[in-house]
Computed example of a mutant assay.
Amino acid sequence: MNTHKNARLTYLRRLEMVQAITERGASAPDAAASHGVSAVTARKWLARYLADGAAGLLDKSSRLEKSPRAIERHVALAIVELRRKLYLQARIASYMGVSRATVSRVLRRAGLSRLSDLRPDEPVQRYERDNPGELLHIDIKKLGRFDKVGHRISGDRTQRARNVGWDFVFVAVDDHSRLAFTRVYPDETKLSAQAFLRAAVGYFASMGVTIERVLTDNGMSFRSGLFAEVCLELGIGQKFTRAYRPQTNGNAERFIQSALREWAYGDAYANSGQRRAALPQWNHFYNWHRSHHGINRVAPVSRLSMSRKNLLTLHN
């Protein structure tokens, strides 16, 4: 029972009122007056008490017992079963003798509005290369530049920076170790892509890792002849993700999520230049100090096939 704060009659007060009428012979108007309600209200609760006993004095739902527009349960179940047999909505409506809107409403509630909802989920396929450098995931994240604290920090969307431009964050993540390399470029052209690949290969070489293959999406910069020539020059094989399957490049996608949360939106930068300058420091923290759940909660650098002495030298 959920009695509102201004209610004159709680369950116990209703019971007292009807008992005053039935057991002590009080009239309905007198009992009503002593409880601060009208005689009509007293007779209403008396009628419920006589029909259903004390249980009749409990609050009832205000919902109608039967709605003329409500669909029967067996009809709703039949609609869902027909949908599972790949029937189109129009055909279901005609077959069941109901409107298309009714069919649409039932299927929406059942989560079967689209035929694709009937397809079984693709099994999650997880893999990991055996050694560092066997596969390097490369991706790009586009971030808007700004010249003042953004609305994510201030909460004031009227003060958003406009027409400032974009930063393109190129990321490269080693499949085995999750070691990452990042750089920010003013565009995502083939020139920036090939420059980033050269820089990434140089960085990983400094960490004792030789890159054998790279995996990218199907963007124009990665599909360009220039990028292919650089891969050939560096002796690197090139692979592309499946169309409309960003999860194929999952390591880079996951790294970008962490970078956005902990670096890009993790502090109140005065401008995008300040944000850009903070990236190398966060990238160092990610590689050397941040535990990674995908590799048993160790830092990526710990999975490199280098001696501890060499690693300490690089870190210093």
Rank of each mutant, 00 (worst) to 15 (best):
T3A: 12
L15V: 00
V18W: 04
S27Q: 08
A31C: 04
A32N: 06
T41E: 10
R43F: 06
K44L: 09
W45A: 00
Y49W: 13
G53N: 06
L58W: 04
D59R: 15
K60E: 12
K60G: 03
L64H: 11
S67M: 08
R69L: 08
E72Q: 13
R73T: 11
V80D: 01
I92E: 05
T102S: 14
V106S: 03
A110L: 04
L112N: 02
L115G: 15
L118V: 11
L118E: 09
E122R: 13
K141D: 01
D147F: 00
H151T: 02
S154G: 15
G155C: 11
G155A: 10
T158S: 15
T158D: 13
T158I: 03
Q159Y: 05
A161E: 06
G165K: 05
F170A: 00
A172P: 07
D175F: 09
H176E: 00
L179E: 02
A180E: 07
P186W: 08
R198N: 05
F204V: 11
A205E: 13
S206H: 07
S206Y: 03
M207Q: 13
M207W: 10
V209G: 08
D217I: 00
N218W: 00
G219V: 12
S221F: 00
R223P: 07
I236W: 05
R245A: 00
R245W: 04
P246E: 08
G250R: 02
I256P: 10
N271L: 01
G273Q: 12
H289W: 09
H292V: 07
I295D: 10
L304G: 00
L304H: 02
L311V: 10
T313L: 14
H315N: 06
